[in-house]
Amino acid sequence: MRYVFTLSLIFNCFSSLAQTVQPIVNVSVTMPSVALIDLLSTGSFNPNLKVVAPTEAGNAVNTFASNSDNWLIFTSAVAAGASRSIKGNITGTLPGGLRLRLDISPYVGSGAFTPGSCFVTSNVYLTTTPTSFIDTIKGAYTGINAGSSGYKLKYSLEVQSYGNIRSGLTAITVQYTIADN
């Protein structure tokens, strides 16, 4: 019992002498801004949308092909409080009487986003004027696997003015841009 008491006394002595000091190391990292955007495809990067002519007199050309081969991917890092959006536009002239519709599916994949960011705002009709369809992009990366990472893009044609439709082949280019808001 005497030994126990002695041991306890020693540790009490140490405790009473214990002191804490806190030297400091300053650590700082400057992170660069990042804005990268690209397309992936499970098929062709050049979808061919073909209007099918009616087979019976008096019917409309009401069967249109669509294409969902392409996926939009991006990486973004912004300064505090900043955000970006992705816009799409065409270069060239659409065939008369038709408009090009872009449907954007919700994100899929194993990337990561700043919570509450990267909203698909709406499906859009692509024109020569850039139109935003994914907004509030802050920190994000989508992944890089075609068919399982990013936002699936669906192109389709719609009749806007039947009387202006003409036969023939038209090639246009769709351009995507990620830019600061």
Partner: peptide, 29 residues
């Protein structure tokens, strides 16, 4: 690419001595 993030924090090193400490200093030149 014009915006940058600046990140800073302090790393505390707590030196606890169960005896009398003469001094503790931390430097990197």
């Amino acid at each position: 690419m014009r915006a940058y993030l600046f990140i800073l924090f302090f790393l505390f090193l707590s030196v606890v001595c169960f005896s009398q400490t003469t001094s503790v200093a931390i430097t990197n030149g």
